[in-house]
């Protein structure tokens, strides 16, 4: 199982992804965990960012064939599917 770690930034709520001990803004740049123990370790490390009031609600989600399994994560990674001019999908253009 491939997993990624995500959270929302406290100050503006934006979606963040975990990469090597810190956070990045896009799913493409994020770290992929093939090892469950490594994913759990990252989640534990992310709790420190919660304690420091930088992010809220970190959690792991599953990736399959390079895409999140859940529609929810696909939409979080891109932006509203009904407004492709908004959200991360708009920044990419």
């Amino acid at each position: 199982m491939v997993q990624m770690l995500t959270a929302n930034r406290l100050i503006d709520g934006r979606v963040l992804y975990w990469k090597e001990g810190g956070w990045v803004e896009t799913l493409e740049d994020a770290e992929r965990f093939t090892d469950t123990a490594a994913a759990e370790a990252a989640l534990t490390a992310a709790k420190d960012f919660v304690a420091r009031n930088l992010v809220v609600n970190p959690y792991l989600f599953e990736i399959k064939d390079g895409r999140p399994v859940k529609e929810r994560e696909i939409i979080r990674a891109a932006g509203p599917s009904v407004r492709t001019d908004l959200g991360k999908q708009a920044d990419h253009v």
């Binding site: 709520g13 979606v15 809220v56 609600n57 509203p80």
Partner: peptide, 16 residues
């Protein structure tokens, strides 16, 4: 959370 909600502020998928 309950305090911000009482003032209409949610944290949603992309932002507040």
């Amino acid at each position: 959370k309950p305090l911000r909600l009482m003032n209409g502020l949610y944290l949603q998928l992309h932002a507040y």
